[in-house]
Design a binder for these strands. Structure first.
Length: 597
DNA sequence: GACGGAGTTGCAGAT
DNA sequence: GATCTGCAACTCCGT
C-alpha cells in the first residue's frame, strides 16, 4: 500500500508528478560492502533538517553504521514553508523567498550527492512530529539519527520525537555538529549560566572537535522491500505556491557543493584570510563583498563549521602572522558559538519582556516608521539602499546590518528591536535565530553592549567607504544622477540640481523620515532615562508597569518640546535617577593638567 | 567595595 | 590617509 503522507496545513499540493522510487540495491551494496545477508538488518532513518551536507556529518555516519538500509529524509515543514499572503514581502510567515530558494537548491544538491552514492533524499511534507513517527513505523526503523538543534522550535519538536522513540524502543542519535562546541557543556563549565561576555565565553573553551571526515563513499540504499511508496520530488518555488520573481535575485546558490567551492576559493587567498579584521570591512562593497559570504552555508549546515575552523587554522599555521579574535575570521566563528550558547541558556532570549539579560526599554510601536524602514523609504539613501539590498539579495554586509539596526532602534526611530529582528529573520538568507536575536539586542543596546552614545550616522558612516555613492546608485536607481556632493543627503540639493538629476525629493524619492540631529538627541535622552530605570531596578529588572509609565512620560515630554532635553526637564514628579558623575580617568587628568601648563 | 582597564566595528576634528 | 583625541559615558571583570 502506498505511503500517504498527510499535509496538515495550507501547503498546496505539488504540481509535479510523483515518482516511484527505483534505485540500484546492488550498486550501493557493492560500493559499501553490504552483503545480501544484511538486507533484513537494521533500518536507519537519517533526518536532515539543518546539516544539509554529507561531509563531517556524524549523524549520517551513525545512521550508516551497521545498517542494511538508510532512509535519508527531509520534511517540508509548513511552519517554515507555507506561503503567507499577508506578509509584507513574498515568502512564508517566517522566511522570505530567497531563503526558501536557497533551501530548495541545497536539497537538490543533497539529493544529487546521495544519488551518486547509491541513495537518494526522500522529501515529505507535513508537521514533523506527525510525519516522522509515521515513517518510523512504515519503514520499520530501528535507529533514528539527526543533528542536535538548540533553537526553541526544534527543541520542542525533537523532545516529542525523542519521547516517541523511547516509547517504541527506537535507538536515537542526535550529535552536536552544527556548532564547534556543545552549548550545554559550555554553560555547565561556566557554572550553570551562559557567559555574557565574549572574553568570559572564550575562557570556557577548549579545543574544538575535529571534523569526523569526508562524505561516506557510499550509503546503504533504502530497502527495496518497503519501496511501495510515492515520494515528492524536490519542489520549485512555484510548486510551493510562490509566484515568479522578477526582482534581482539572491547571488547565493544553495548547497554543499557550492558552499565547499566557496570555502576553497576563500581559503586559497591566504593573505586575505590572515589579515581579515571584521570592523575594517567595507559595508558598501557589493561587486566583491568584503566578507566570506559563507554565512548562509553555515546557517543551513551546507558547510561544516568544524571543517571551516580546522582549515582556517591550517591557513594560519602557514602564515607568519595573522589577525586574532574577536576581529579575525576565527573570531567570527567564535562569535557564532557565543550567541548560540547564550541563546540556548537564556529564557525568552528572542524577546524583551521576560528576558533576564535584556534591558527593558520603552520602545515605540510605530507601524509607519517600521514600514518606511523596512521598505527602504526612510529618505536616507544609505539606510534605504541597505534595506533594498536585503530585500533583493537576502543579504547585506554585517556593518550595514549594524547601521540599519541602530537607525531603527536607539539611533533614530526608537522602534522595538523585535520588529526589526522579524524583518531580518524573514529576509536574510543566512538568518540564524541565536545570532540574529543576539545582534539585535547588541545593536539596540538591550544586552551585551551599553555605549548607547555611539551611534552610526546614516550619512557619514558609509560615506567614508564609498564617497561616490556607487552602492546607493546601484540599489536606488532613481538617485543614479544625483551629484556625489548630495548623494548621502539629497534633500539638501538645490531644486535646480534635483531637476537636473531627474529626482525631486518628496516626489521621486522620499524626504527624510526624521531630522537625524533631533531624532538622535531624543533617542539618547530616552536611552539615558531607560538605562537609569534599569539600573535603579538593581539586579532585577524594572516591571513592565514601570517601563510603560516611563514610556508615557517620555512621549508626553517629547511631544511638548521636541528640541528639549528630557533629563533637563525632569523637574516635576519623580525624575529618573541619574548616575553619579565619575571622576576623570588618569589619562584624562593627565591631559587636562598638561593643557593647563 | 573601590578602582581602573577593557570592551569586535562612533563621530568629528586635529595632528 | 592614518592615527590620535575628546566627547560623555556604559558594564563587566580583575586586582
Amino acid at each position: 500500500m502506498p505511503l500517504v503522507l498527510k499535509c496538515t496545513t495550507i501547503l498546496p499540493p505539488f504540481a509535479v508528478s510523483r515518482i516511484r522510487i527505483r534505485t540500484s540495491v546492488s550498486r550501493a551494496r557493492h560500493l559499501c560492502g553490504v552483503g545480501e545477508s544484511r538486507t533484513m538488518g537494521q533500518h536507519s532513518l537519517m533526518w536532515f533538517r539543518k546539516g544539509l551536507r554529507l561531509h563531517d556529518n556524524p549523524a549520517l555516519h551513525k545512521a550508516c553504521e551497521d545498517a542494511s538500509h538508510v532512509f535519508p529524509v527531509f520534511v517540508l515543514d509548513p511552519f517554515f514553508l507555507a506561503p503567507d499572503p499577508t506578509a509584507p514581502s513574498p515568502g512564508s510567515r517566517t522566511a522570505g523567498v530567497n531563503r526558501i530558494h536557497f533551501l530548495l537548491q541545497s536539497l537538490q544538491d543533497l539529493d544529487s550527492s546521495l544519488k551518486s552514492r547509491g541513495s537518494q533524499l526522500f522529501l515529505v511534507h507535513g508537521n514533523p512530529t506527525e510525519v516522522i513517527p509515521e515513517l518510523l513505523e512504515k519503514w520499520s526503523i530501528k535507529r533514528l539519527c539527526f543533528e542536535h538543534d538548540t533553537e526553541p522550535y526544534a527543541q520542542d519538536r525533537d523532545k516529542r520525537i525523542k519521547e516517541i522513540c523511547e516509547e517504541r524502543g527506537i535507538e536515537l542519535h542526535s550529535p552536536v555538529s552544527h556548532t564547534l562546541f556543545n552549548p550545554a557543556e559550555t554553560i555547565l563549565k561556566n557554572g550553570g549560566k551562559p557567559p555574557l561576555t565574549y572574553q568570559a565565553f572564550c575562557r570556557t573553551l577548549g579545543k574544538p572537535p575535529k571534523p569526523v571526515g569526508d562524505a561516506p563513499a557510499a550509503i546503504p540504499e533504502p530497502s527495496k522491500d518497503l519501496m511501495d511508496v510515492d515520494v515528492v520530488p524536490i519542489p520549485s518555488l512555484q510548486d510551493l505556491g510562490y509566484a515568479d520573481l522578477n526582482e534581482e535575485f539572491t547571488p547565493f546558490g544553495g548547497g554543499e557543493t557550492e558552499g565547499l567551492r566557496r570555502l576553497d576559493k576563500m581559503l586559497a587567498d591566504k593573505k586575505w584570510v590572515a589579515e581579515f579584521e571584521k570592523p575594517k570591512g567595507n559595508p558598501t562593497a557589493f561587486i566583491k563583498p568584503a566578507t566570506t559570504c559563507l554565512s548562509p552555508y553555515l546557517k543551513f549546515g551546507c558547510v561544516s563549521v568544524r571543517l571551516f575552523y580546522a582549515r582556517l587554522l591550517t591557513v594560519y599555521s602557514e602564515m607568519k602572522k595573522h589577525s586574532h579574535p574577536p576581529v579575525s575570521l576565527e573570531g567570527q566563528l567564535l562569535w557564532r558559538e557565543f550567541f548560540y550558547t547564550v541563546g540556548y541558556g537564556t529564557i525568552n532570549y528572542d524577546r524583551m519582556v521576560g528576558n533576564p539579560i535584556c534591558r527593558q526599554i520603552p520602545w515605540k510601536d510605530d507601524e509607519v516608521l517600521l514600514s518606511r524602514w523596512r521598505d527602504g523609504q526612510t529618505g536616507f539613501p544609505w539606510i534605504d539602499a541597505a534595506m533594498i539590498q536585503l530585500r533583493k539579495w537576502g543579504w547585506m554586509h554585517h556593518l550595514a546590518r549594524h547601521a540599519v539596526a541602530c537607525f531603527l532602534t536607539r539611533g533614530d526611530l526608537f522602534v522595538y528591536w523585535e520588529k526589526g529582528r522579524d524583518v531580518f529573520d524573514r529576509l536574510l538568507v543566512d538568518s540564524d535565530w541565536a545570532i540574529n536575536n543576539g545582534n539585535w539586542m547588541w545593536l539596540s543596546a538591550s544586552a551585551f553592549f551599553a555605549q548607547y552614545h555611539r551611534i552610526y550616522s546614516p550619512i557619514t558612516f558609509a560615506k567614508k567607504h564609498d564617497p561616490e555613492g556607487n552602492y546607493i546608485k546601484h540599489f536606488i536607481p532613481v538617485l543614479k544622477d544625483m551629484p556625489k556632493a548630495y548623494i548621502y543627503e539629497p534633500w539638501t540639493a538645490p531644486l535646480s540640481v534635483q531637476k537636473a538629476a531627474n529626482c525631486i525629493i518628496g516626489k521621486d524619492y522620499p524626504k527624510p523620515v526624521v531630522d537625524h540631529a533631533i531624532a538622535n538627541k531624543k533617542c539618547r535622552d530616552r536611552m539615558g532615562a531607560a538605562f537609569a530605570l534599569n539600573k535603579a531596578a538593581g539586579s532585577g529588572q524594572p516591571t513592565q508597569e514601570q517601563v510603560n509609565a516611563l514610556n508615557e512620560k517620555l512621549t508626553a515630554k517629547l511631544d511638548e518640546d521636541s528640541d528639549a532635553s528630557i533629563a533637563a526637564e525632569s523637574s516635576d514628579g519623580e525624575p529618573p535617577p541619574s548616575p553619579k558623575p565619575k571622576p576623570k580617568s588618569k589619562r584624562q587628568r593627565t591631559l587636562t593638567e598638561y593643557k593647563k601648563k
